[in-house]
Nucleic acid binder design. Sequence first.
DNA 1: GTACCTGCAAACAATTTGCACTAAG
DNA 2: CTTAGTGCAAATTGTTTGCAGGTAC
Lengths: 138, 138
Amino acid sequence: MWTVDEVLEKLKSRGYKLTGQRKAIIEKLCGRKDHPTAEQLYNELKKSHPAISFATIYSTVQLLAEMGFLQILTIDDKKTHFDPTPETHAHFFCQSCGLLEDINISQEERDKLNGLSKYNVRNVQVYLYGLCNECDKK
Amino acid sequence: MWTVDEVLEKLKSRGYKLTGQRKAIIEKLCGRKDHPTAEQLYNELKKSHPAISFATIYSTVQLLAEMGFLQILTIDDKKTHFDPTPETHAHFFCQSCGLLEDINISQEERDKLNGLSKYNVRNVQVYLYGLCNECDKK
DNA sequence: GTACCTGCAAACAATTTGCACTAAG
DNA sequence: CTTAGTGCAAATTGTTTGCAGGTAC
């Protein structure tokens, strides 16, 4: 996991400007274990930055993904979710209630997945779809 | 892999009507190794069924996915791709040119992935992102 | 001072939906 | 006959874009 300073450092070193909005987004994501959507971040950030825009959120998140600080998940076909944990792991998505949960996978497993393709693989996603316990009962 | 008759059989047994459009879509998908989008199917089907609509394509594909004959891939965040091979396997997506390729994974690996969650898992997707050889050279 | 960023609103595009008509059984 | 399925077009919605003004450095 990363720290706010670490990310700011890297942004600076790559010549990006450290704007208030970027800092706010990074702080909002730091240490999170959930998988917010753009809308969720927007609503949360509005409190401290009433004029913040989706354009800024999307562009910053894109930047963070390129720098390897977060993952953009397409597990939910309705909207993208952002995962502030950059290390490869799997995700479970409940097709009924939308529950989105991290699943740890071993280093051995990660290596195996990475080696599956003959191409230059930058990123691996493992998505499990099904019903969570709550929804399975119904 | 499935046959056209097998799918028609199952549709019938579940009380669905065997329309010309459904048959055409199923025939168009049968045995394919690529991963067409809705638009691709639409363009191909227009030749034999000039009035076919996206509504029909999307609803039929949805049906086929529910019955386990195809997978709906969200590896490309721009559009969904349909994979007529229902057995669990991985996919590679070139972030530069959009190449989308099947990758075989062993039964052992599949079992391992399926067992990752404590929940009732219906479907597993493994997406590898990167650059294909062509794009990597540039 | 000068790029780069941001906010805004409009644009975009894939998918979904409502409804009148058609055809499978 | 009856009702699920279809085609059409409009609606929807998450994300992207263009541009004028703002701000980090």
